[in-house]
Write a protein that binds this DNA or RNA. Structure first.
Lengths: 225, 225
DNA sequence: TCAAAAGTGTTAGATTTACACCCATGA
DNA sequence: TCATGGGTGTAAATCTAACACTTTTGA
């Protein structure tokens, strides 16, 4: 290969994943104790280095799959973090991505193998390097996006009750929502389909299960929650 | 320095700047013909490599200052671009930033020295590598932001007429705005101050000049245009 | 029988949109 | 004198927010 830029310096490029989940009415983040030096033992996001022959997006997908065993997750770039001293070892520029998963899809066995756990967003510990900043920025981006794009369903099972969906919005927006107004808006979205199935785990009476139909959802569909 | 990550590969990290301006009622972008190999002669954004001892943000600020001679510009990260083959020469991950400048503040002499020109956003040529994608993404981010944060003033002179401001919003949002409704909303924003000065360049009668007062603007001020 | 969650409409208030004419000036 | 851009208010329509009771069922 011809050397075009040899007077410039090269750095390591890494990806870090902010993985959001929703369980027991709370927004959660998947974090673990760092298993390598420097910073061993500190709370940290799960990440990895970008290989010479993979794109940054591919690296994020690889790391995400390695950690969760799940494919086709919703994932979005949060941004690049590039302070000189952000990594105490060497110069590393890191690209953060956030992903949404349904907590129930993630096998506990795999989770434990990677030494990560679900921590309530509101109870995060101090974290390694700038990981706390990454999480805040990811959270900001996610909550802006979830209001206008139908990504909330990625945090729920395929079939969900309207109360579950409402609780999710309440957790993300940080404020209670009027049940009747909420359901009125849902009823106007033809891509949120009522099934004949009933979930009896959340109440004695049981609640209808709904599903998001992505085929019915068009780019110009109105989505505001 | 201890070598912690030696089994991984290093890459070049660059920054690319999408510089928006507003002139003659049109949104403009500052681009030039690439003056280095590979890709010499292709239309390109202005950029530079991140040095070993500067943060990625610092590199963007340095490059921006080098190009424009202006400090304290509004600048925001668009994201990282990291396809393996995005640079035909070597592996380069690039972080894009967009900036807003008042076209009149940019001296033509400096502009010509750097071989860049203002091109209408709607008439952009084919561009080097993924620069076209960077611009689209920057534009998306900018137009989302300009609706809810008072950054539009960065594209205008310190003193501006309401018609200028309205034309700017029309150009960015791509649709005409009702003059009376627009001015009604402006009147409710106490941080947009009417001066006693009159601009006679745009009309025979002359129009009052306004200014944005950032001291009056609070984080919780309502801004929707 | 009662506690707990599911489900359902209406109204007042706030916000948004549509719309048309007179004014001041320089050429 | 006339062409050009500057400046102003009102009313209808739409959207948003507030609000309370009945149903079902398992314990």
């Amino acid at each position: 290969m011809t050397i075009f830029y040899s007077e410039h310096s090269k750095v390591y490029v890494a990806v870090d994943c902010i993985i959001f989940g929703f369980d027991e009415g709370k927004l959660k983040v998947l974090i673990g104790k760092r298993q390598m030096d420097p910073g061993r033992g500190e709370w940290s996001l799960y990440g990895g280095f970008v290989g010479a022959q993979e794109s940054v997006d591919d690296a994020a997908n690889r790391v995400l799959y390695e950690l969760t065993g799940l494919r086709n997750l919703y994932m979005r770039q949060v941004g690049a973090f590039g302070s000189v001293d952000r990594d105490p070892g060497e110069r590393v520029v890191s690209i953060a991505y956030y992903a949404l998963i349904n907590v129930k899809d993630y096998h506990d066995k795999l989770r434990k193998e990677h030494g990560v756990e679900w921590v309530n967003f509101n109870e995060l510990p101090d974290m390694y390097s700038d990981h706390r900043t990454m999480i805040s920025k990811a959270r900001q981006l996610m909550s802006d996006t979830i209001k206008t794009e139908p990504i909330s369903f990625r945090l729920l099972p395929k079939l969900f009750t309207l109360t579950q969906l409402q609780r999710l919005y309440e957790a993300v927006n940080g404020e209670l929502v009027d049940k009747r107004n909420f359901r009125k808006r849902i009823k106007e979205m033809d891509f949120i389909e009522k099934t004949e199935l009933i979930d009896k785990t959340g109440s004695k009476r049981g609640a209808y299960l709904y599903r998001f139909n992505k085929r019915v959802f068009k780019k110009d569909s109105i989505f505001k929650l």
